[in-house]
Design a binder for these strands. Structure first.
Lengths: 291, 291
DNA sequence: CGCGAAATGGAACGTTCGTTCTATCGTGAC
DNA sequence: GTCACGATAGAACGAACGTTCCATTTCGCG
């Protein structure tokens, strides 16, 4: 009889999958742990960063135990070895976003969780939340102030965006229209763009948006304006964006994605804030700059 | 006095000691970097977490370079090897986003004085969060399923949106293009819209978006299609929307606002989910609906 | 077109890693 | 006292690591 070498039916992993769960289990069983394992338990909760970055050998030295003890500790809690336990500690550092946990739990609890297309729906909502959580960190208030300054001073604001970025500029175009801020939307009808840009002067300014993979047209148009001393403000997702070098001020904003489709929420929120801040500054200066 | 231009006799190692300094140096010298090193430079700033946790081999694979290139990159910036550069990225994760909390508090403290546009910015991010928190409640999974059904079956999907809703449909147009879903964007150039709509048949379907104050054109176009037995799915913000009566399925979605400017994040997340769900359903049915 | 320098890819190297294995230790039962 | 058994320390091992080295390619310049 070919018996599978599996003495215990529970040898299938019941290991905690996130740090909070792991912490709970450790605290719960801490009292009944052998001496050395208790020592590791205390160390792991007191120095989680060390566990995340260190090697088994270095951690063992710090915690004053043998490396093999770390392995036994990990296996004691259902992990295959020390390395897989370490992943929990690393994941904790990656996704440290306050409030995010609660939102995700709320999402899991809703009706959409059951249906298949519902998980797509929840996925995009979660991605949007993540994007927004990051955006405040990514945007420096001083830079934002400066961008508002530049664009509020401009006579006409040129909006440059293609493809995936186009919805952002088209929102700004709509809002600028309502707010009576003079603008030119570049990239709507092909052919006349160059003529439009040729009319730009130092008194104007431009706002360009482009995310990887960058539309070469947008980069070229931004460069064209920069060469003509038209100040350019840009929104992109990497310091290596071709837009950056043409810009007086630029913002680096990485959207979270679901299934490879990047959110637009953070960019949109940014665009709205910029638009309104510009209009507000103009209103206060009593200079509408409009038609 | 440290002279900026140094012919690089490599006298003393002047490696940056923290992430911000490193980032600054990389950005400063990125233009003069060889191809592969520039590639690493971009990757390192775009995926700092990967650098922190990964191994030289795994990072090299992700960044599509050789491990040795990573070492050369590190040495190029004054580090002894890749490992010591990696320490910088790890230290960055250890420090809990220093300064950010303070900056936020400072912003909240100074409501009107110094950084007024900062509060505008925070306001829009908060509004977007609120919108997203509501959207899962507002959208019924069954209705979503049905909408996906209708639109996935369609030969051509007509996208109807004006003004404030236009960014939403223009994102969908972009995504449909990428996903090879046949669509017609209604409302781009005035005049030919009616001719476009006249070509719609029962085999097609439409997705209309309109929020209060409703664009009368959008409502009229939706009605026109409904009369011709073209199924219409719509996204709006009230049960009394003129779109509702023309629609087979409609969604009521109220965006939160800041200073009277409504967010678009919930609508965008909805649009993305709908778009991807449609494409996913088509893919599974092996029916692309035309190229 | 040809030359020299710089950059690159990839194999090879010595090191260090996490894990396993086993002899020894400590402890409670009888 | 000694037997049984889990816990422990530490050596041993294969795998994977970061680094180095060198042949080849690419680039800039006369």
């Amino acid at each position: 009889m070919p018996t599978p070498e599996m003495p215990t039916p529970e040898s299938t992993t019941e290991a905690p999958q996130d740090f909070e769960a792991l912490k709970a289990v450790i605290l719960e069983r801490k009292a009944q742990l052998p001496k050395r394992l208790k020592q590791v338990a205390a160390y792991s909760l007191d120095h989680p960063d060390e566990i995340a970055f260190g090697t088994a050998a270095s951690i063992a030295t710090s915690a004053d135990v043998q490396p093999s003890t770390l392995v036994r500790f990990a296996q004691h809690f259902g992990f295959e070895g020390f390395s897989s336990l370490q992943q929990i500690f690393r994941a904790r550092l990656r996704e440290r976003t306050p409030g995010y946990e609660d939102r995700l739990k709320a999402l899991r609890g809703n009706d959409h969780a059951t249906l298949e297309s519902g998980s797509i729906f929840n996925g995009f909502v979660a991605a949007a939340h993540r994007s927004l959580d990051n955006v405040a960190r990514a945007i420096h208030p001083e830079a934002f102030e400066k961008a508002v300054d530049i664009l509020a001073k401009a006579d006409t604001i040129f909006l440059i965006a293609k493809r995936r970025s186009y919805p952002i500029s088209s929102y700004m175009a709509y809002a600028f229209g309502k707010l009576r801020v003079k603008y030119q939307h570049v990239g709507t009808a092909a052919g006349i763009d160059d003529d439009l840009l040729a009319m730009a002067t130092k008194q104007d300014a431009a706002f360009a948006v482009s995310f990887s993979p960058y539309a070469s047209e947008s980069a070229a148009q931004a460069r064209f304006l920069a060469n003509r001393k038209v100040p350019v403000v840009s929104l992109t997702d990497s310091a290596f964006s071709p837009l950056a070098e043409s810009s007086k001020v630029w913002f680096e904003l990485v959207e979270a994605d679901h299934a490879g489709f990047r959110s637009l929420s953070a960019s949109m929120a940014f665009a709205m804030a910029l638009t309104v801040a510009i209009a507000e500054k103009r209103r206060r200066q009593g200079d509408s700059g409009g038609s």
